[in-house]
Design a protein around this nucleic acid. Structure first.
Length: 513
RNA sequence: CGGGGAGUAGCGCAGCCUGGUAGCGCAUCUGCUUUGGGAGCAGAGGGUCGCAAGUUCGAAUCUUGUCUCCCCGACCA
């Protein structure tokens, strides 16, 4: 085993943070941009995002939600209409104050004082306010409801500490915004979006998640209820991978989103918002990556199968390439995971054995290396990314007849997809601990010696206000946070870990990103 | 935003303390030999040392400022 020469030099177990960065760069997903906290997303990383976008967009539209696009700039005054909302975001907003530059006389440029904006524009950190203003125009009658909109956009939050894909200053996301006649309708939509995210994470990203409600202290600024999906990373930390908010009527009140009901009265709308971002890619890395780099679930792999011809710069190359092209065309006609198979014939110069490791680091599900002998015998030499190493410590190549491989390719890709989910699910389940009943026992469990503690499910009495603040402080001392209250948990049957009062529900407690 | 570390060739680094106009490995290019599994030998190209001021005859090296990245903390939908 120790003879294995891994494709990365840093291992997960040695330094998870460094390993994460190595995957991002070695898989050629993204790089630094020179702009604080902002990244350049390279073709492989962006290709994964495009797959996520495409499949998520399909689900959004299937729910009757329509795409729109709203401005990047939001007048500052829009924010001041909702007090909690502005408090939540004030500290991290980029502000545009001028619209022209002039020479500073020293060869540089400075904002022209003459060109100061009357009202500063905020670069959107999220679009509730500007979309709310539009909704106020679009909704007049009960017949206009529900109003179901979504936008794919970039947003900016001036975070103090950034990490590629997980928390960048600018990030890409989708934000759904809906308006409804009643609280019940809005809650149904909030939970529909949550369930959409849960299903997407598991079926598409092969990333098991816990869907649940966030505690009061973790709510979106201005929301009445916030729900999240939480995924467990391989270091045992939790990643909030998507959120859905029931906003009540406070945003409707701030923006004036009202409708006339069937009795002729004016009513405030109940609104929701929900989003997932490029952070999902960080989740995929930390769920599926290994000591050889990324592993991309087939559903979101820009290329699912890469063919590497073993060219020798001689007369045989033409026939070999023709053989590979024929195979590529055949595979591209197949359907796997309900879409045409995405197969690349990599004709770039270089030895197949070298290019193989680039694709391993990128995490392509299947690599086919094909040489002259394969062409003569009608075979392919296959390497599965999820079964990379043979017991002898060498790459685990498997030989198939060309026809045999083609006929199996769709089911193979589907098996890799479900296998990755099963593996991640098992790892998550064995790293959830139950039965810890006191704060001391919790502290004991999360000692520094326990390198991969995972999550703990505890029971609590759901304190609010100052009592909740105290709980949050106690957890903070242990570097812990409440992740969420899982939707489908067993009913509580014990006492509160924090207060000793009878417990009312179960919550997950963990370290988090 | 506080504490610590770092920015020198595409990538990874040495040189800096004790100023004298730049070096190693990988990658790249050329040639030859190899080649069914991350090739070998020989040769070559490539850097205003993050940026800006200052000290100096002279700055990668010393001083100050600034930008960016990494780690820890605070913050964080």
């Amino acid at each position: 085993m120790s003879a294995i020469r891994h494709a990365l030099t840093i291992k997960r177990a040695d330094d998870f943070a460094q390993w994460y960065q190595a995957v991002v760069s070695q898989a050629d997903m993204a790089e630094e941009s020179g702009v604080r906290g902002c990244m350049v997303i390279k073709p492989w990383g962006y290709g994964i995002w495009e797959r996520i976008q495409q499949l998520m967009d399909r689900r959004i539209k299937a729910a009757g939600v329509e795409n729109c696009y709203f401005p990047l700039f939001i007048p500052l005054s829009y924010f001041s209409k909702e007090a909690e909302h502005v408090d939540g975001f004030a500290k991290e907003m980029a502000v545009v104050t001028h619209h022209r530059l002039i020479s500073d006389g020293k060869g540089g440029l400075v904002p022209d004082p003459e060109a100061k904006l009357e009202e500063p524009l905020v670069v959107r950190p999220t679009s509730e306010t500007v979309i709310g203003a539009a909704m106020a125009r679009w909704v007049q009658s009960w017949r206009d409801l529900p109003l179901l909109t979504n936008q794919w956009a970039n947003v900016v939050r001036w975070e103090m500490r950034t990490r590629m894909f997980l928390r960048t200053t600018e990030f890409l996301w989708q934000e759904g915004h809906t308006a409804h006649a009643t609280r019940d309708d809005a809650m149904v939509e909030t939970l529909r979006a949550l369930e959409m995210y849960r299903g997407f994470a598991e079926d598409v990203l092969a990333m098991p998640v816990i869907a649940g409600e966030k505690p009061e202290n973790e709510r979106f600024p201005g929301a009445e209820a916030t729900y999240s999906i939480e995924a467990m990373m391989q270091d045992g930390k939790a990643l909030q991978a998507g959120t859905s908010h029931y906003l009540g009527t406070s945003f409707a009140e701030a923006a004036g989103i009202r409708y006339q009901d069937q009795e002729g009265g004016q009513q405030l709308c109940h609104t929701t918002s929900w989003g997932v971002s490029t952070r999902l890619i960080g989740g995929v890395i930390m769920t599926h990556g290994d000591d050889d780099g990324l592993r991309v679930p087939p559903a979101i792999a820009p290329w699912q199968i890469v063919i590497l011809p073993m060219l020798r710069d001689d007369d045989g190359d033409g026939a070999l390439l023709a053989y590979c092209e024929e195979l590529r065309d055949k595979l591209a006609d197949l359907i796997a995971l309900r879409e045409p198979v995405r197969v690349l014939l990599d004709r770039k110069p270089g030895k197949a054995a070298n290019k193989r490791w680039d694709w391993v680091r990128k995490g392509v599900p299947i690599v086919l290396e094909i040489g002259g002998r394969d062409r003569e015998n009608g075979t392919v030499s296959m390497l599965r990314r999820d079964q990379l190493w043979a017991e002898n410590g060498k790459p685990n190549f498997q030989n198939h007849s060309c026809d045999g491989f083609s006929s199996q390719a769709p089911s193979l890709l589907e098996a890799i997809q479900t296998g990755m989910l099963a593996e991640a699910k098992e790892r998550r389940d064995v790293n959830i601990t139950r039965g810890i009943a006191s704060l001391d026992a919790l502290a004991e469990f999360f000692t520094d010696a326990n390198q991969f503690p995972g999550w703990v499910e505890v029971q609590w009495s759901k304190p609010t206000g100052a009592a909740l603040d105290q709980v949050v402080e106690q957890l903070k001392a242990l570097k812990l946070t409440i992740r969420n209250v899982p939707m489908n948990a067993m009913p509580a049957d014990g006492s509160c870990l924090f207060t000793g009062a009878p417990a009312v529900e179960r919550i997950f407690v963990a370290r988090s990103y």
